[in-house]
Write a protein that binds this DNA or RNA. Structure first.
Lengths: 139, 139
DNA sequence: TTTATTGCAAAAGATTTGCAACAGT
DNA sequence: ACTGTTGCAAATCTTTTGCAATAAA
């Protein structure tokens, strides 16, 4: 069930235990982990993995376009393994939970040419902010 | 010409030289500065201002809803003084320039109820990514 | 064997904090 | 005067880097 690993092997990515574990951690749960959370989960499987390697590997997956960096208001970036399927994010302002969503309209089409200031616009990224059911209930 | 300062005074915000200078710096240019850039500009006007005070003040303006924090991929957050007028951002992937834009459709309406996962969705924030004319030209 | 990857530890960058001195109201 | 704000310096958190040891191909 590891699409990501297969794709990486197919691209001739040099495989090591550390890289495999990082890829597995990301691919396993479709949530958006911070580097620190990836390290924690990776360490559970491979105790000798180092923080620097986690950062190296995440950076590489981002360069390869297999993982997307998500900047939120919190200090740490989150890593989204769902780079192959276009989607947007729904973010809870209170607890920071992120869910993937798929809006009906293409946001790119909502930005008229005369508003593009000569930019070559490549992508649009939407973050919906609000309260998840638990936080809204005052959990 | 300082809307922001007037609004703050109107809200009974305790005014100090430091706070005034930070508000003036933000209000003056409608670009999106980092805390460090705000400090530099503030220092030019008031040499004895400290970094901590700039952070304190920015944090307060954010709490008051007068300034919006913008998280980009870069490490440092940027501060957007244009909180009163709804708008979205156009970001250059290469040099980090940000411009305010006003798309034609309300992005909120593009997220159907069945995709909201029970969230109370309060706002939608769109970042258009691309290359500004200079970076596209290979400047 | 060859070359890229790893781990360590230190460095760097951004932001926060504790606390005594200080300045608005 | 009272209370909130400031400056300083140290602390914290996240991420990056240099380099020798190591492991994949």
């Amino acid at each position: 069930m590891s699409d990501l690993l297969d794709r990486l092997r197919g691209r001739g990515w040099r495989m090591t235990a550390q890289r495999r574990v990082v890829a597995e951690v990301l691919d396993g749960e479709h949530i958006h982990l911070t580097a620190d959370e990836v390290l924690a989960r990776a360490t559970a499987r491979l105790p000798e993995i180092s923080r620097a390697t986690v950062y190296n590997t995440l950076g590489e997956l981002v360069s390869l376009g297999e993982v997307v960096e998500v900047a939120t208001d919190a200090r740490a970036k989150r890593y989204d393994p769902n780079a192959h399927r276009p989607h947007q994010h729904l973010l809870c302002s209170t607890c920071g939970t992120i869910r993937d969503v798929h809006p009906t309209d293409d946001p790119l089409s909502a930005l008229p040419t005369h508003e593009r200031f000569g930019f070559t616009v490549l992508a649009a990224e939407v973050t919906y902010r609000g309260l998840c059911p638990e936080c809204a209930a005052g959990a």
